[in-house]
Structure formats: C-alpha cells, structure tokens
Design a protein around this nucleic acid. Structure first.
Length: 422
RNA sequence: GGGCGGGUGGCAGAGUGGUUGAAUGCACCAGUCUUGAAAACUGGCAUAGGUGUAAGUCUAUCGGGGGUUCGAAUCCCUCCCCGCCCGCCA
C-alpha cells in the first residue's frame, strides 16, 4: 500500500517509478479520487458534528424536562442523519474504489533498479565457483533420482497428480539433511528458528501482497484459510498490527516449511522433474527492521543465502532483477542462480527482496521511532534456500559416471555418515 | 463441534443508554523541592484522519463488522480471540 501524502507531495516520482514497471501514470487518478473522498468526508464530518452537538442538547433538554425543545432538536438531528447516510455511503463507495486500485498496484522500485522486460534483462552481479567438467554425458536430476529408485513421480501422480514427487531413502534423508544444515547455518547468523502456521487467513496474504491480485496461485484450505505459498507470509505477519519497540529491531527469523503453489500461470514450464512442484520445502529468511537499515539487511540476507551454496560447493551467480522481473511487493531483489549441468545454465534457487514499507503498511506494522512518532517498519524476505532445488543441484553437480551421487562433504554428517548414494 | 464466562488506554482496573476519549492505581515524561537521588507535590501522557501558517478545531476508534436509538464502551446480531466444562482427536 502507499502513503497518499507521499504521492500528494511527489506525484511525478511515483509515476516515473511505476513507469519503470510499464504502468500508466496513475498519480493523478489516485489524487483526484482522494480529493473527492476528502471533500465528501468533510461534509459527513460536519453533519456528524451537528448531530453530536444536537444530541447533547437533547440530553440537557430532557434533563430539564423541556420536551418541546427536545422534539425540535430531534428533527434537526434527523436532517443531519440524512446527510450522513447519503454522503457516508458515497464516501464508502469512493474509498472502496480507491482501495481496490491501490491494493492492485505493485510496489515502486528503487531508482537504481535496472530497466528491463523480463528475466533476460537481469543484471549479473557476481559469480562463484566453476562449473565442473564432466567426462561423461550428464544426466538430469530426475533421471538420476528415478534410476536410483529414490525419486518417484509416477507414484506421486497416482495419488496427487502431476508436479508432485515421492522421495525415498537417501534422497528423502537428503531433503531433511539440507534443511537441517540450512537452519543450523541461518540460526548461527542470528536468524531465530521459527515454526509458524502453514494455514493462514486471507488478511495475512493481503498483508504480504499475495492477495488480492494473485489468488489463483494459492491453494484454499477449508472455508477460511489458504496454504502458505512461502513462509514469508507467516514470518512477516508475526509483526502485523503491532507497534514494536525500536530496540527489538532488527528481527531476523528463519523457518523450514512446505510451500504450496498452484503454478496456475506456469503451464508447460518445467513440467519434468522437481524444479517446479505444487509442494516443496524451503528454508525462509525474513527480516523486520528500521527503514534506514533495510539496504544493509538486504545485503546481509544475500550473504547468508550465498553461504549455503558455498558450503555445498555449488557454483552459482547472483543477479539483480530488472523492473520486468521484479516481484509485486519488492523494491529491489537479488536472485541467486545455481549451476545445473543438465540444462547447461544457472537456475533460480533463491530470491531475496527488500519490500520497504509496502507490506508494513498493508499489515499495519510499526515501531516506536520516537515519542508520539510511530513509523512503518521495513520488511525483507528471501530463501535460504529452496530445499527442493538445492537437492536438484546437488544431484546434478555431484553425479558420477555410474549414476551414483557423491554426498557433498558438508552434508555427510547430516546424512549419518553416508558418502555416496547408490 | 456444544455450553458458560470474558475481551476497556503501556499494564492493572472502574464504568450497563446522555459533556466518558473514558474514573482510579501503576508505569512513563517534565517541573518544584534536594548537593544528587529517592520520597512528596504539580502538570503532562492513546491512535488514525479532515481542516488550518499556527494555536486550535472537527470526525472516528472501549476485539472486528453490522444494527437499534435523537444519543452506544453500555442494548441486539455476527465474526474473531482468551478462559473454563463437555464431546472428538494426532
């Protein structure tokens, strides 16, 4: 959500930044609507003031036993009430329209975010590690897993359909091992391990801005809840509707949860293998901080996510997302892409975003900046990392000619000492 | 899932239809006193929004939403949350 005052003071800046996302100029429309609302509100409030005043006088008149005067005042109030009802309804309707418009608008990117239409225009910031030279034909992770008998898409399809998998034995263990290692690393970096709900109300999803615009990407659960598409929703909403003490910031949280996504818009993409599933595990990082700290925290989260890939010795690169690839709630995002030999390319394994006060406004999450000065916090989220995709990367990068998988050194202790799978 | 009892300012806790945005206590801030501190005393102390250069003023808010009424923290409906009892259950 946006600060109408800020738009009022600087409409050109908002229009320019929305334009970076390919949106029409909207400030005028927003401000005209706002003006309309405030004007109508003034009329309502004046009528309300008249009603309140007359009502008090009625009380006084009744006290004195002056029934005539009371009756006269009642007719006065009736007139005011007509105005309140009529104009009030108009205000509600105009406000609703403005809210709908604003709720559907993406966050404004930082000025520095590179312009671009899509993924291909993202800007590479750094590279780490060197893709390994294979002296045999590399297999894709799903072939490796299927051949080992430890990754079973057919069985999953029988009970749940496509985009699900059954992992068995050492691969199931590896999924747990990776998550455990990530949690150990992130908690060592000061992120508090958290076990949040996996089912949330719509208002929580509204707060982190998956709703109202992206309902079709979500799985409803029962009458009132949705399955979380990412732990970002649960972790970020831990501070909703609250005023935090400044000294409790920054709050850094991490959680290992399943994530559920309908992948409605992804028909035909990554249909094979574990890259894009309806359900996957992820270790999430969320930071709640003061506005002046958010850029530093953003870099810190990037560093923490990178550490996992370095520890696993998986080659990766970091890109900054261009305006065309930037998520709805983000002002600036880094993606970490891991090397996948079977695809001969880097694929996203983590996305780390600074949302500024966008989500905080939608959640009403503030902190005490000074006495009588409560300000919105900044929220950031990122994967640290996507467990399923990390498993994919380990399988592909650590595969051997005979189809076995060498367990990364860092993971051996988490795998109960197992050094080779298969 | 059923029944009963609750939800009031940072906290505790009054208030059951008429100057109650809300008593009182604690906490907090400022001042007086004091060498300093404590105590005592005095004053201040919610949020959001409209309007105004400002002082100010107006509106809304006593879990959320809706209703009754000239007037609602107080009455009604509904949802949420907390507590207790019963049922069910990993």
């Amino acid at each position: 959500m946006f600060d109408l005052k800020a738009i009022r003071e600087n409409p050109e800046a908002f229009d320019r930044l929305w334009a970076k996302r390919g949106l029409e100029p909207l400030s005028k429309k927003i401000l005209d609507q706002d003006k309309l609302i405030r004007k109508a509100m003034q009329v309502v409030q004046e009528a309300e003031a008249a009603r309140n005043k007359a009502s008090k006088q009625i009380g006084a008149a009744m006290g004195k036993g002056d029934k005539e005067e009371a009756e006269r005042l009642k007719t006065e109030v009736a007139g005011a009430k007509n105005v309140i009802a009529a104009m009030g309804a108009q205000v509600e309707s105009e406000k609703g329209q403005l809210d709908n418009l604003l709720a559907g608008l993406p966050n404004v990117p930082f000025e520095t975010v590179p312009d671009g239409a899509g993924e291909e225009d993202n800007v590479e910031l750094s590279k780490w590690g060197t893709p390994r030279d294979f002296d045999f034909d590399v297999k894709a992770h799903d072939d490796l897993g299927t051949d080992l008998g430890l990754m079973d898409f057919e069985t999953a399809a029988k009970m749940s359909g496509s985009r699900f998998v059954v992992l068995r034995g050492a691969l199931s263990r590896m999924d747990r091992a990776l998550a455990a290692m990530m949690l150990d690393m992130q908690t060592a970096e000061g992120f508090e391990e958290t076990s949040p709900p996996f089912l949330v109300w719509p208002k929580a999803l509204y707060g982190t801005s998956q709703l109202p615009k992206f309902a079709e990407d979500l799985y409803p659960a029962g009458e009132d809840h949705f399955l979380i598409p990412t732990a970002e929703v649960s972790l970020t909403n831990t501070v909703r509707e609250s005023i935090l003490e400044a000294e409790t910031l920054p709050k850094r949280m991490t959680a290992h949860t399943p994530c559920f996504r309908s992948e409605a818009g992804a028909a035909g993409r990554d249909t094979k293998g574990m890259i894009r599933q309806h359900q996957f595990n992820k270790v999430e990082l969320v930071t709640i901080c003061k506005p002046e700290d958010s850029e530093a925290e953003h870099l810190n989260m990037l560093r923490c996510a990178e550490l996992v890939l370095q520890k696993l010795e998986l080659p990766y690169r970091v890109v900054e997302l261009c305006t065309g690839d930037l998520g709805f709630g983000a002002r600036k995002s880094f993606d970490i892409e891991v090397w996948l030999p079977s695809q001969d390319t880097y694929r996203e394994i983590s996305s780390i975003s600074n949302c500024g006060d966008f989500q905080a406004r939608r959640m009403n999450a503030r902190y005490k900046h000074a006495a009588k000065d409560n300000r919105f916090v900044h929220t950031l989220n990122g994967s640290g990392l996507a467990v399923g995709r990390t498993l994919v990367a380990v399988l592909e990068n650590y595969q051997n000619a005979d189809g076995t998988i060498t367990v990364p050194k860092a993971l051996v202790s988490y795998m109960g000492g197992l050094e080779v799978i298969g």
